[in-house]
Amino acid sequence: MPLIMMSGFPASGKTTRANQIKDFFESKISELSPTDPRVARLKVHIVSDESLGLSTEVYREARPEKDARATFYAAVKRLLSQDDIVIADGMNYIKGYRYQLHCEAKALLTPSCVVYVGAPAEKCKEWNVADEESGDGDSHRRERYAPDVLDNLIFRYEEPNGMARWDSPLFIVPWMDEDIPGEEMWNAMINNEAVKPHQATVLKPAAEANYLQILDKATQDVVSAVVEHQKMHGPGGTVVIPEASNTNPGEGQKIELPANHVGLPQLQRIRRQFISFNRQHTAEKTRLKTMFVDYLNSELE
């Protein structure tokens, strides 16, 4: 039966969502079992780092991380069958790894999907250090990520793409949503129904065919301006982006840089986050730089 791959930044709330999915599917099984023998045979399993006894420290170095992924992969493979629904509650942040899991499900002629739990990096960092019983983020997870490990994993994250067959169907669950798209997931995974456009799968289509290219270039231009300013003037100061303005067009908008040097890796990480949150939204191309400058200022505070 289906493989449901959770994906998202560490501490983004994946375990909370995985348990919501498990509860929903078990409720549907209980409801439909009396009249549907096929459904009555189904069982739901969650495979997670915690259930396998894998520490967050395995992500600090390449060799232990590779071994941990192999352990996780083997556990999922063992459970996959015609009567078992497997929720792979890991980051599944490498697209090649998601492809491997997709192939395992395909070999058993069973469907798979990806649930992308979207949360800003700063929110994940907040949840990572929050009290485990607060109800936010991965409330069922017992081990925190070291700050440097968390930053590295966020930097390396490869976002799911619903156009890729191994990431399709893709269900997007924003961090602020209380519920999961349970019915849509059940219909796609159990009833084999095609996924219809829905807020969970399509936030908003781009009005222009080259929207992503425009978004990419607009954000890169801003990053390049910041890098060039620091080369010329050192840390701190103000960078004016002529094409961005919240008031009068042509006056430009200011980026207020902190006193310490802002490195290119940090700028690119913020840029990737912004693109991730806006890639499926339609925005006027003349507003993209303004929006990114606002986002950059908030992240650099």
Rank of each mutant, 00 (worst) to 15 (best):
A188H: 03
E104H: 04
L150N: 03
D136Q: 14
A121G: 14
S134F: 10
V115A: 04
G137P: 15
C113L: 07
A194P: 00
I172Q: 04
D138N: 13
K125N: 06
I190S: 04
P120G: 03
S112H: 15
R141S: 13
P181F: 04
P205T: 12
R144W: 01
A105L: 06
N191R: 13
A121F: 09
V173I: 14
N152K: 14
Y116N: 07
P111V: 07
L203I: 15
V202A: 01
T110W: 00
N187V: 01
F171Q: 01
M163F: 10
R141F: 09
E143M: 12
D148E: 12
S112M: 03
P120L: 06
G137W: 10
E178I: 10
N128I: 10
E143F: 06
N128D: 12
S168M: 04
G137E: 09
L153H: 07
I180Y: 02
A164S: 07
N152Q: 12
E158F: 01
D151L: 10
G162L: 06
L109R: 14
P147R: 07
K106H: 08
W175M: 02
M185S: 01
E143Q: 14
P205R: 11
E183R: 13
K106G: 07
T110H: 04
R141D: 05
W186E: 03
R165C: 14
P181W: 05
V115W: 04
I172R: 13
R141P: 05
I172W: 11
E193S: 06
A121Y: 12
M185T: 02
V202D: 00
A121P: 09
P147F: 06
E122D: 15
V114R: 05
Q199E: 09
E133Q: 11
G135P: 11
D138Y: 08
R142L: 14
C124D: 08
P174E: 03
P197K: 04
H102I: 01
V202L: 11
R142N: 12
P111E: 05
E193C: 05
E104A: 08
L150E: 01
C113V: 05
Y157T: 03
C103S: 13
P147V: 09
V114C: 01
D138W: 09
E126K: 15
K125S: 11
G162H: 04
M163P: 00
A105F: 03
S168T: 11
K106T: 07
G118W: 10
A121R: 13
R156Q: 10
D151T: 13
R144M: 12
T201Q: 00
M176W: 15
E104P: 00
F155R: 15
D151R: 12
M185V: 07
E104W: 00
L150T: 01
A206H: 06
R144G: 08
R165D: 05
E132Y: 02
C103D: 11
G162P: 06
C103M: 08
T201C: 11
K196D: 02
H198L: 04
G182L: 08
A146N: 08
M185Q: 02
P181R: 01
P147D: 03
P181V: 03
P174V: 02
S139E: 12
G118E: 14
A119W: 11
Y145L: 08
E184L: 15
P120D: 11
T201Y: 02
V195K: 01
L108Q: 03
M185L: 13
P120M: 05
S112W: 06
L101Y: 03
E132W: 02
V117H: 08
L203Y: 10
